[in-house]
């Protein structure tokens, strides 16, 4: 057993865990934060996506003990103190979900993705690697979100929701 001090959604939690416990299982089974989902437990579906210091990661391949002290944000925490994150509302409006099981991961991933794009990071479909501030086209959204599978096939609605939210943010 090791003592792991996690900081999740702004709150500190101290857990005694065997080191093999993943961050995902620590969230779901120990902290009761079941909004983060387990779809494959092998980094192949993205349902477990959370933000670690604002960067999106697959929490299933993260040992909880490795993330002690990092600022972890899950779907339950993305709204902060507010009534809801506008991206959540955009998902509902654009029907970017069906069964809902991949949705938490899609939303956390999208938040991380927009931060990456905002920081000028390129993607596999970026035509000119050195051109910072390239436009967030639908092709860019789709490539950058490809780590999040949706078997219901709500992809169109998800892209619509992200585009709509990103445009609203750009207006602000």
């Amino acid at each position: 057993m090791v003592e792991v001090r996690l900081r999740v959604n702004g709150a500190d939690a101290s857990l005694d865990l065997p080191p093999q416990v993943s961050l995902l299982d620590a969230l779901r089974e120990r902290l009761g934060l079941t909004g983060t989902k387990k779809g494959c437990d092998q980094g192949a579906c993205g349902a477990c996506t959370v933000l670690a210091d604002g960067e999106r990661i697959n929490s299933c391949l993260a040992l909880a003990v490795q993330y002690a002290g990092r600022e972890i944000t899950t779907i339950e925490g993305i709204a902060g103190d507010g009534p809801g994150h506008p991206l959540q509302a955009a998902f509902v409006r654009n029907d970017g979900l069906q069964c809902g099981y991949c949705t938490s991961g899609q939303i956390c991933s999208a938040i991380g993705m927009l931060a990456e794009h905002g920081a000028g990071m390129p993607s596999a479909v970026t035509e000119h690697l050195c051109a910072d501030g390239a436009e967030l086209t639908d092709d860019e959204i789709r490539e950058r979100m490809s780590g999040n599978l949706c078997r219901c096939g709500a992809y169109n609605g998800i892209v619509d929701a992200i585009r709509e939210f990103a445009a609203a943010e750009a207006e602000r």
Binding site: G43, G46, S109, G147
Partner: peptide
């Protein structure tokens, strides 16, 4: 390679 999440790790 992989996905953005995995590349971040």
């Amino acid at each position: 390679g992989a996905s953005a999440q995995l590349r971040n790790m």
